[in-house]
């Protein structure tokens, strides 16, 4: 098996691809294990439904979210070989994605505020004490 030769004059040097498939399989197992942990936590939430407090449910969901970000990192860095590119290029891809931090915080807060306004008639009455679960949802959305 001979290594490939590129004809692109604008590419200065090529990343070293002479390694074996060991790293690929290692990342496969990492992704599988992370997925299994996520599923176990999801199943934990299902089994304990209604027994856990608000903060316990929220923190379990945050852990699942962090595991998802770890999976995304491994897929992009190793499977998509972004980790083998030069730093300038990695930054042009990763830096714009930072917008998502604002995007997620702003819009979820907006949705939450919308719920509070509706439950309290825009602040004119107190919110029902038991409002998170078991309340009939309005079918107008």
């Amino acid at each position: 098996m001979s290594e490939q030769h590129f004809d692109y004059p604008e590419v200065t040097f090529h990343p070293d691809h002479s390694g074996g498939t060991g790293k690929i399989w290692k990342i496969f197992w990492v992704l599988s294990v992370l997925t299994i942990i996520e599923l176990a936590l999801g199943y934990f939430l299902y089994v304990k439904h209604g027994e856990l407090g608000y903060n316990a449910v929220l923190s379990t969901k945050i852990v699942i979210g962090v595991l998802t970000l770890a999976k995304a990192y491994y897929i992009v860095s190793v499977f998509m070989h972004l980790g083998d590119e030069i730093r300038n290029f990695i930054m042009t891809i990763v830096v714009p994605l930072v917008l998502f931090v604002w995007f997620i915080i702003a819009f979820l807060a907006d949705g939450n505020s919308w719920k509070n306004l509706r439950n309290t008639n825009a602040g004119s009455r107190k919110a029902p004490t038991e409002q998170v679960e078991g309340q009939p949802a309005e079918a107008t959305h």
Partner: peptide
């Protein structure tokens, strides 16, 4: 792919916004 990520991101965040705005959402389980 980055622009496509923003498209999917916008869809999912829109979904999250509506989900946060109601008192009861469908339980995936």
């Amino acid at each position: 792919l980055m622009s496509d990520a923003f498209t999917f991101g916008a869809f999912l965040i829109s979904y999250g916004t509506i989900r946060f705005s109601v008192n009861h959402w469908a339980d995936p389980n």
